[in-house]
């Protein structure tokens, strides 16, 4: 893993989306005290696919529904996502996925 400094904004989001790679995701997650597992990656892929399609990071309520559709009822709950990505899942998963902050979250 390279140790090049990542260009981040003051909230820790990547400034250039093209800088992202799975290794970068690991480092961004580490900054947040999260170790990525397959369960995290499943959600990260969903969010990146959504961004590729609509050029937007999903808000929490949209994320919950997407995860429910793709991964199932047990995963499609806020509580599951909050456990994976701490208290603010939509914001944190976008950050680790190398995407902009969702529109309606502070």
């Amino acid at each position: 893993m390279t140790e090049l400094a990542l260009s981040l904004d003051k909230e820790g989001f990547l400034r250039r989306l093209s800088d992202w790679s799975p290794e970068v995701a690991e480092r961004l997650a580490e900054n947040e005290g999260i170790e990525l597992t397959e369960a995290h990656w499943a959600v990260i892929h969903i969010v990146r696919d959504y961004y590729a399609r609509y050029r937007i990071s999903p808000a929490t309520r949209v994320l919950v529904r997407l995860v429910r559709e793709k991964l199932g009822e047990d995963q499609g709950r806020s509580i599951y996502l909050m456990q994976l990505f701490t208290g603010k899942p939509a914001k944190l998963v976008s950050k680790i996925a190398g995407l902009p902050k969702p529109a309606n979250c502070d």
Partner: peptide
Amino acid sequence: YSVTYGALRDY
């Protein structure tokens, strides 16, 4: 951002 209009239904 025109494609983002496609997401409005999700919202």
